[in-house]
Amino acid sequence: MARPVPVINDAVVQALIDSLDAEFAVPLMDTFLEDSPRRVEEMQQAMRAMDAELLHRAAHTLQSNARTFGLEQLAEFCRSLETLARTGDLSQAQALIQRVEIAYRAATNALEEERHKHAAK
């Protein structure tokens, strides 16, 4: 049985804090939290326009950024969406976007908690 993918990988967050120190890592978290809603919106725009290239770019960008902060569930759904968009067949994309949106909410909540924990130090 496959192990469930965690919302956030605490070891990745700690490694980021250790390598950059909180004074630099917290602003990076802020940037992600401010910028990432645009990627999710781009995914919806791509579906409305049936634009596989835009969907691929938005999913790729959000996946990469999510991995930086150990947001594993979000990154995995984005990876799946990126792979799907690469094929050009968007027939299953809306269902994946809905999963991305759910994972995104959980991921941003988890990252906000980490941000507050490390900003207080």
Rank of each mutant, 00 (worst) to 15 (best):
T61K: 00
M43G: 03
A15Q: 01
I8K: 05
K121R: 06
I97R: 07
E42R: 02
E76D: 04
A75P: 06
V13Q: 02
M50A: 09
D35S: 02
L20S: 13
I97M: 15
E53Q: 09
A58D: 10
Y104Q: 03
K117Q: 08
M1I: 13
A75H: 05
D89V: 11
E41T: 08
R115S: 12
Q73M: 03
G88T: 10
T83E: 08
N65R: 15
K121E: 00
D89W: 13
H56P: 13
A66V: 03
S19Y: 09
F69V: 00
Q45P: 01
L74T: 07
A103T: 01
M50Q: 15
Q45K: 12
V12F: 01
H56G: 14
D10Q: 07
T31V: 15
M1T: 14
E82T: 00
A11E: 01
M43P: 15
D10C: 05
E72C: 00
A22V: 09
V5H: 06
A66S: 01
M43F: 04
E41C: 02
V7P: 03
V26G: 01
R105A: 11
D10M: 09
P27H: 07
D10H: 05
L84V: 09
Q14G: 01
R115P: 13
I102L: 08
R3W: 12
E113S: 02
Q63T: 06
A59E: 12
V40N: 01
S91N: 14
L33K: 13
A15P: 00
E82C: 04
A85Q: 11
L90K: 15
R38H: 12
E82H: 05
M43V: 14
E72D: 00
C78N: 04
A85R: 04
E76F: 06
R99P: 10
E42D: 12
R79H: 06
L62H: 10
T83D: 10
F77P: 05
D21A: 08
L111Q: 07
M1Q: 14
S80R: 15
A22E: 05
E72Y: 03
A59W: 14
Q92C: 14
I8L: 00
L54V: 02
E76Y: 05
T83W: 13
A22R: 10
E53Y: 03
N65L: 12
L33I: 08
A95E: 15
D51K: 03
